[in-house]
Amino acid sequence: MKRLALLLFAFCFGALQASAFTFTDDAGDSYTFDKVPGKVIVLNSSNLELFIAAGGKPAAYGESGTMPAYLNEYIKGVPSVGRVQSPDLERIVAMNPDLVIGMNFPFHISLKNSLKQAGIPLAVFGVHDRNDLTAKMEIFGQITGNPDKAFQKVASINSDIEKAQKTFGKPSKKVLVVYGTPESFNMALPASFIGEIAELAGGMNIAGRDMKGGTGMYSGFVPVSLEYVTMADPDMIFIISHGNKSTPAADSQLKKQPAWSALRAVREGKVISLPFDTYGINPTVRLGEAVLELSSLMYPELYK
C-alpha cells in the first residue's frame, strides 16, 4: 500500500514536471509556469490567431479593426478587454488571468510593469517571418498545453507552401506589392511579411531586387521610385489598401493615373487588390493559405 502511494505520488509529480515550462518573450523576459495557464487573455489579433491555432481558448481578447472574418466569428461570446491600442487594465486585473499575451510594441511592453504589480505576467510576441512563426507556434503550443496541435499547424502551413512551390516550379513572374492608395503609397520590400509571402508564392519582388538589401533604414514598406518600377517592368502588381474586400479582385484604379497607366501590368489588367485582413497584416497561421492563394493568382494556368 505504501509502495502504491509512493508510485502514485511519483506519477503525479512526474506529470506535474512534464507540464512545467519556461519560455522567453520578444522583450527578452523569461516566464516559468508549473502548469498550463488556465485563464489567458490575448490582446491583439495576430497572437489570438496563434493561440487559437495552437488549441487555446482565450478568456478575453483585445478588439482590433483588422480581424479576419473567421476570427470575428470565433470571438462572439468571448469578453473583450477594450481595443488593442488601449486595453482596459482594470478589466484585465479584475479577471485575474494567469497570463496576458500582447503585441511586441512599446505600449504593450510598458504595460508589463503595471500588470506585474497586480501579479499578472504579460508576455509580448510578434511574428517576423516564416522561421519565427515556427518558433512562436512552439511557444504557443506550450502555453495552451497542446504542443501536438501547434506542431500539426506548422506542418500543414509547410505542406501548403511546398504544394505551391511544386506547382509553380521556378519563379518566373516579376511582382510589385503596393501598400496604400495611389495618392500616398509605399512598396513592400522582400524583408516585409507580404514581401516574404510574395516570394514564397513564386514572385520575384522588383522592389528589393538588385537593391542594397532592404535592411536598416529601408525595410518593410518604402516609397520606391516609379521610374525604377517602370524600367523593371513587373508582370503583376498587387495592391493592399484598407477597402473592405474579402477576396482578391481585379483593380482598375491605376489605369486612371497617368504615371502608372503605361506600365505593362496596368495595361494588361494584371493589377489585383488583396484583402487587408490577410495581406495588410501578418497572416501568421494563415501563411500557407495566403501563399497558395497568391501563387494561384500569379500562375492561374498552373492551378487549373
Binding site: Y179, G180, S184, F185, Q257
Partner: peptide
Amino acid sequence: LFSDRVQGTVNWMAGTLHGKS
C-alpha cells in the same frame, strides 16, 4: 483609433511628389 491604417497616410502627411503626374 485606426493605428493599423496610418501607414497608408504617412507619405501624404509628410508631403511627397512620389507618383504625381
